[in-house]
Design a protein around this nucleic acid. Structure first.
Lengths: 200, 200
DNA sequence: ATCTTTTCTTTACAATTGTTAATGGGGCTG
DNA sequence: CAGCCCCATTAACAATTGTAAAGAAAAGAT
């Protein structure tokens, strides 16, 4: 149950068996169905989720329209970070895209871990640094790339998500409308001279 | 010389006098003229800068065009983070926009600090978390706002920079061209002056 | 299997931005 | 002080995206 979690944190720090036990005990296992909302707008969340199985997405509500901010895959820590880290009302929603198996750690238990295993500070520092760099990469794509190039890079990096996630969710993540994404897909099919897939 | 630095880190952790001394000693003071490049593309930087006075900007080179990724003000830690944190070749440039007074800490000295004052891990974790949240805010503006709204928010939050920084640098930071930003400015002036005419 | 809902694509039109080029102002330098 | 470079603005045109609506396809529910 904890194998993916250990494999993930091994990239950052080494824990001895005793520390591993303390670390594991801070988490609880939870199964959550598809389309389940873990954090609502306005709510102050005290939970951080490690994804063993499934997909989560963070999204904003813009006048009733859902704009995806991020899609979390297996092996990642997910949360409404602004709310969790600052204990402030969330400005976004966190929801499952599939049935999920999660390892949940609550803020109190994380703070307890900081006391009992201080080197967890190094772990969370490195995770925060990695998330920051990741966020910068995405932001730079908005500054440097056209929507078409952004879609192309998404396909290269997350082609599996095209099959697992509705396209209008991906479109909003790329900062475009589903209509525009459909046009881009059509252009790329024609450009690649691949066999067309719709009516003959 | 260190007063702004102490004031800044006090938001995150408390250091006793001895720790403060160790912390200060890790930095060196440096004056840098306007338009000076601190980090070049491809370079692996080992320095992190705290800005006592002046402005820095991070920018990308896109076929000879300079696209600004971030503008750092006084009281902030600035660096080409991707390069500094991962010790990888920088994909961006870091340059002064004004004559600057900087406090510089090198990677070796930071790592030494992690050993001698372990709670510095907490400080850098919180700084990374804050930078991550800040990056998320900017990213969300690309997803949720039009270029015009993004300009408007920039004016509200950083009106002083409109006077200190050339407009084409701000435009690229907002993800638009100087031409488009000029049109937006014109529209906003007219909107503020002229009352609404009539509806269709 | 049928009905219903959701999702993806297409079309036509409106609106905005990007591109290129020209103008004029401001500041810096010799 | 003149000359020059950088910068902000404006104009005209091309290209792309957004919007709204409709139909087709796929997925889910009963």
């Amino acid at each position: 149950m904890f194998s993916l979690l250990h494999k993930t944190i091994e990239q950052f720090i080494h824990l001895d068996p005793q520390e591993k036990a303390l670390f594991e005990n801070a988490f609880s296992f939870r199964e959550v169905p598809k389309k389940f909302t873990l954090v609502k707008y306005g709510q102050i969340t005290r939970e951080l989720y490690f994804i063993n199985k499934g997909l989560l997405r963070l999204y904003y509500d813009k006048n009733g329209e859902e704009i995806t901010g991020y899609i979390f895959r297996e092996g990642l820590f997910a949360s409404s970070y602004d709310s969790f880290l600052r204990q402030s009302p969330s400005i976004q929603y966190l929801e499952t895209l599939e049935n999920c198996e999660l390892l949940v750690i609550r803020l109190e238990q994380l703070e307890e871990l900081y006391r009992t295993v201080p080197k967890i500070n190094i772990l969370t520092r490195k995770i925060a640094e990695q998330r920051f760099i990741n966020s910068q990469m995405i932001l730079s794509s908005f500054l440097l790339d056209t929507p078409e190039e952004r879609y192309q890079k998404f396909v290269e990096q997350h082609s599996d998500l095209l099959l697992r996630v509705p396209h209008h969710i991906i479109a909003s993540y790329l900062g475009i409308t589903p209509v525009s994404m459909s046009r881009i897909r059509k252009r790329q099919l024609q450009g690649a001279k691949l066999p067309e897939r719709h009516k003959a």
